[in-house]
Design a binder for these strands. Sequence first.
DNA 1: TTTTTTAGATTAAACGATTAAGCAAAATAT
DNA 2: ATATTTTGCTTAATCGTTTAATCTAAAAAA
Lengths: 345, 345
Amino acid sequence: MKKASLKDIAQQAGVSTALVSYVLNGKEKETRVGEAIAQKIRLIAKELNYQPNHLAKSLRSGKTHTIGLIIADISNPFFANIARVVEDEAKKNGYTVIIGSCDEHAEKSWDLLNVLINRQVDGFIIVSCEGSENQVHYLKERNIPFVLLDRHFPEIQTDFVATNNYKASYDAGIHLIKSGYKKIGIMAYKSNMYHMEERVRGYKHALRDNKIEFHDAWLKEVHFETMDSEVRTAIDEILASEQRVDAMIFATYGLAINALKYITELRLQVPSDLAIVSYGQAEVFDLYYCPITYVQQPLEMLGKTSVEFLLKKLKNPDEGMKQILMEAKLIARDSSKPKTSAVNG
Amino acid sequence: MKKASLKDIAQQAGVSTALVSYVLNGKEKETRVGEAIAQKIRLIAKELNYQPNHLAKSLRSGKTHTIGLIIADISNPFFANIARVVEDEAKKNGYTVIIGSCDEHAEKSWDLLNVLINRQVDGFIIVSCEGSENQVHYLKERNIPFVLLDRHFPEIQTDFVATNNYKASYDAGIHLIKSGYKKIGIMAYKSNMYHMEERVRGYKHALRDNKIEFHDAWLKEVHFETMDSEVRTAIDEILASEQRVDAMIFATYGLAINALKYITELRLQVPSDLAIVSYGQAEVFDLYYCPITYVQQPLEMLGKTSVEFLLKKLKNPDEGMKQILMEAKLIARDSSKPKTSAVNG
DNA sequence: TTTTTTAGATTAAACGATTAAGCAAAATAT
DNA sequence: ATATTTTGCTTAATCGTTTAATCTAAAAAA
């Protein structure tokens, strides 16, 4: 029992496929289909449990109602959460999502892009990785609709939905300072990605605005690929330095996890030995013996808005560029509680 | 500058599209295409950067090289990790994966199934949820290839790849008993899913084989949807009961997380007040002040094998049924360390 | 020399839908 | 009664491939 096609319905109804198509697409008015025959077609369609063939539709229309989501890694909770939001929001609008993980690797990202372009996704939502500017330019040139998510390139005019990382880091810095910490370090990825630079810049400005001199040794930049080992070295160094820090900001969830493991090994007490504020969010932060203060990014909003922007663009390609920076929220916990009883609760 | 099609190449080469198709699909030998013309076609194809249109191919062949992966929730680390493995393994074989989250909800799962069938995925990898037996039967009837992953229905003959949950729970129980715990509870989902029942059965048998009488109060079954509140009640009850437990097994990651949060609130010490073994795996288990003993499922193998089974089935639909149960590994940590110095290190 | 075979190409249908264009009959206008 | 419009439907091209069937000329065999 094969799937029923338009033709099958047409035959049973004794009409042409055109009529069937018109009726089933609700164009009976414009195309003046007789009411009687329309009824009949609808009935037969229901009887045969007709399901239109997406492939054929897509081939004809050039639209697949599919969007490609390129992220670093679906097994990372941040991206997994984003993916879930995107999936739901897309489904709500009749779109299907194909997710690809590029491991922060421009080459993989490029492969994914091509695979998905070949599969004729209607558009992309992309969490760009370092060195993928050419890909963004490529999409622009080829006029393939896309929205950058979470990260963007300020020197390239694109739609994007991201977090105000500068502000988030600034707030994190201020928070630590207000809590009485004066020697504050930050660990970030070695990267010239704008979002990462902003996370560092915000931190620096928080220091500056509070007359705290920034020391180069306080900034630790590690490579994504070799994070596991580099984080340890970095922590060793930052604690051994002349200007030993009493607090640290971790610019990503991955960094924080690695650091926490090492800090636990070292039997350092949080926050007395080292106060902590981290980006990202996950169960660990709640359940760590000293709950971790973190920068809560508006995941839901980021995901939803990116889908919204993309779909609008698909409906109307000529619509203006949409760019939005959303504010993160600092969730204060014990890992950054006031150093002395002097300040705050 | 539109994408080049077979026709474009054919025109430039001054031949028919058939020839181009033959050459580009490596059928030049069987179909006796002249060597000279074949060269020319390949050259032009390269020049025009020809990329075949997947939609057209699929429409013709009935194969989309796409597989549907239905899981409970991509934002759950267990499934996210599985998804990643599946994604990679599929890509290695030229397949694309479409992931759908059904939230342990048979109705959503059914929707997803239909959406994906309509999108003509070639086959499915499914983590079944409660009450989805009809869906499995449906797939069998319609002869749509699929492999059940992580969970299966023993009363339905299907391909599947799963963990030996009975053995895993049995091992967990034995481990606790050997560590000196005698009053061991278990928390699971209220469910008649086989994998969940097996997790409970293994635990019970571990008790039985060690002459420990099982008390009904030791088994706490909570509903997935209302887990947050029910877990608390369950813990309260199991601790207040006459046969207060000194150790607990959590049958899923989600249960463990909720329980740990509450246990922390209650200021219970792990393992002295309550020893713990949990299913699932994630950073939390490492970073909890008392690292959590957990049942490590062979994620990578599960994912890989499920893809392998499915692809084999796609190649050769008549191949026999493939079923495999993989062994989990208990990772012993401090949360279940020996109660007295009597046993073990 | 005639017939058969073979190499090398083309034609056209098919996959399942959409849709512009066309056509005949009925209804309306002149 | 004739011209025009409207109604209701069909035809056929199209999207980009694949592939069975066919064709043609040249080569091989009879």
